[in-house]
């Protein structure tokens, strides 16, 4: 018994030291403009008010301008998407948001590429852990969404620091974090557009759309990692249990990206079948009637990510469909049965 007490006290000492060290390292080394700081801050400030959620991967995070979306759709929304976000991460982040907010609509972004990666980089999972509130939620995700070997990396910021010798950055971080501007939230990355969303100014410079012969990779639903498919469905089921409207959303891509797929139809069909199975809407903007005219290359930062301006355009187009849907109209009229780029190519 004496030994147990002795060990317990020493274990406690170790935990306290690691926690203090962790806080210190995070304060000194985590960039003052890291979006997670601002996202978490805004999330807690908005707690109890968020009605609409945008979920998914980088295409959703960079695809929607939140201000325009809210203005056009009369919503109070938040973007919980992040780069290569694993589906289980989306599920836990969504649950976390629904717990604290009166969410009534969820736009669930689809990303066949992310769902086809059976082993997503641990650093992308860390973006999920860092955004989750409370130890219980974090623990929940660690147990279900990561392997035990990833835990130290996900739990401890100090093991993620790339360069401990970058004292210049440390000085800048501490100076900035002690400033009034930081407290006010104006020191964030210039591409951070608030409420979790991003939007870069870069414009995609691409070659003209390729021919059928240039199409390289083919989508195969068998490539989808089973665990992510299950979590994708769990997200829909969770929303339906909570009486939340779910819309599956495939943000628009450039013609070049679309043409890189041998055929985009299997992707459309794969998510379409899931939508049908659960009786939810699936708005594939790569089948959008005005895809070629509205989403020209100038609204993209690269092949598949919309830029700052593109986020505004997409938010407006999405709002058009959403308003029609709210009014009880059929949304089919906005979409074609085939991707407009294939029409042109063939």
């Amino acid at each position: 018994m004496r030994s147990i007490r002795k060990i317990g006290l020493r274990l406690l000492l170790i935990i306290v030291v690691i926690v203090v060290y962790e806080i210190g390292v995070r304060y000194a080394y985590e960039s003052y403009f890291a979006s997670v700081i601002y996202t978490n801050r805004e999330k807690s400030q908005m707690a109890g008010t968020i009605e609409t959620l945008y979920c998914g991967t980088s295409t959703m995070q960079r695809g929607i301008n939140m201000d325009v979306a809210d203005q056009e759709m009369d919503t109070i929304s938040f973007n919980i998407a992040s780069s290569d976000q694993p589906m289980d991460g989306t599920y836990f982040l969504m649950k976390d948001m629904v717990k604290d907010n009166p969410v009534n609509t969820v736009f669930l972004g689809v990303s066949p590429e992310t769902m086809s990666k059976d082993k997503l980089a641990t650093k992308w999972k860390s973006l999920v852990v860092d955004r989750l509130d409370g130890a219980e939620d974090k623990m929940d995700y660690l147990i279900h969404g990561s392997s035990i070997e990833e835990w130290p990396y996900l739990l401890l910021y100090s093991v993620r620091v790339d360069d401990y010798l970058d004292f210049k950055a440390v000085k800048k971080n501490i100076t900035k974090k002690c400033s009034k501007e930081f407290a006010e939230g104006s020191t964030h990355d210039k591409y951070y557009r608030g409420r979790g969303a991003f939007g870069r100014n870069k414009v995609y410079q691409a070659e003209p759309v390729g021919t059928l012969e240039q199409r390289k990779s083919a989508f195969n639903s068998a490539d989808i990692y089973q665990k992510y498919e299950d979590y994708f469905k769990k997200c829909i089921e969770f929303c339906q249990e909570k009486d939340i409207e779910v819309v599956l959303l495939y943000p628009p891509m450039t013609g070049n990206k679309i043409n890189k797929y041998k055929d985009i139809t299997p992707i459309h069909d794969y998510y379409g079948e899931i939508a049908q199975e659960y009786g939810v809407e699936f708005w594939d903007f790569n089948y959008y009637k005005d895809l070629k005219t509205v989403f020209s290359n100038e609204f993209f930062e690269d092949e598949k990510h919309l830029n700052g301006e593109g986020g505004k355009v997409f938010a407006r187009e999405l709002a058009k469909v959403y308003r029609a849907y709210q009014a009880g109209e059929k949304t089919d009229k906005f979409f074609l049965d085939i991707c407009p780029f294939y029409l042109a190519a063939e």
Binding site: I14, Y21, T122, E149, E150, Y153, V159, V161
Partner: peptide, 18 residues
């Protein structure tokens, strides 16, 4: 504790740990 913190700071973690 110094050794432990050095391990946390300079050790190779992540999936490489396996």
């Amino acid at each position: 504790l110094a050794l432990l913190l050095m391990l946390v700071t300079f050790g190779v973690f992540g999936t490489e740990m396996t």
